[in-house]
């Protein structure tokens, strides 16, 4: 991946969001929201349902325009979708009429990569997410967890620096979810990418994140940023028993519980 040369000032941040406002008619979804996303790290957006997490993610993706404020990716202002970002959708957004292979290659297909080239790349990522042998299956033949892996492989195969994941594990069972969380940690470690990860789950956020941004309910702003650092180097199993991990989960829960009533 060639690095951009014109982003000296924001070099530490892959994505910056400054004073963003967004309303849907009378509904104020985001109000004066600012947040920075450190390069090469995973930041979670955590907050109660309807607080604007998806809205923020779509604004960063360039799928929705902000009413005001500034978003930059690698120092460039966002005006629409770009090759530097890839989205993983909560409902997978797979083409039901296409095979796994075509679905995974579809991002590259839309970007005009030739058939043989994009299928070779897709094959690699299908193997990476553990779907070898399912290249010619259709989405309806796969389980929810497998479908989301197709969505993930599609996003990975376009090799964007910034990965946007909107509750990617919401529709899979608990065991699969835990496996996915471990896989995600490995991805963050090995792929040199910046991850922005929306989740409902406090435990999940603390487990996978370098930085957790807690959003307040509508109109949404960042109320707190927590950086769980102490247990990052530990192995998957001991993290969940680490005192610092449990402590942070508790702290987030106590600051969010007032909104859940």
């Amino acid at each position: 991946m060639s690095n951009n040369t014109c982003d000296i000032s924001n070099d530490n941040y892959a994505v910056t969001v400054r004073n963003v406002y967004k309303s849907y008619g009378d509904v104020k979804a985001l109000k004066d929201l600012s947040l920075d996303f450190p390069r090469g790290q995973l930041t979670s957006l955590l907050g109660p349902s309807g607080c604007g997490k998806t809205t923020l993610l779509k604004i960063i993706a360039g799928l929705l325009p902000a009413d005001s404020g500034e978003i930059t990716v690698n120092g460039h202002p966002v005006t629409g979708p770009g090759p530097d970002r890839a989205f993983v959708f909560q409902d997978f957004a797979l083409l039901p009429w296409a095979t796994v292979l075509r679905n995974v290659a579809f991002g590259l297909e839309l970007r005009g990569v030739s058939k043989s080239e994009r299928e070779a790349i897709a094959e690699k990522y299908i193997a990476d997410v553990g779907l070898c042998g399912f290249e010619n299956s259709h989405p309806h033949e796969l389980s929810g967890g497998m479908r989301q892996r197709v969505g993930l492989a599609r996003a990975l195969s376009v090799d964007a620096q910034v990965m946007l994941l909107d509750e990617p594990f919401a529709a899979v069972d608990e065991q699969t979810r835990r496996k996915f969380q471990e896989d995600l940690l490995n991805l963050v470690k090995h792929e040199n990418k910046t991850f922005i990860f929306v989740t409902h789950s406090i435990e999940e956020a603390v487990y996978v994140s370098d930085q957790v941004a807690i959003l307040l309910p509508r109109p949404s702003r960042v109320s707190e940023i927590i950086k769980p650092e102490g247990f990052r180097h530990k192995d998957a199993d001991s993290i969940r028993r680490d005192p610092e991990y449990l402590d942070i989960v508790d702290r987030i829960w106590s600051s969010l519980r007032t909104y859940v009533e």
Binding site: K58, F89, A93
Partner: peptide
């Protein structure tokens, strides 16, 4: 979401 997906991949 399918249209959005296609837009997100330009």
């Amino acid at each position: 979401s399918m249209v959005e997906m296609a837009r997100s991949f330009q």
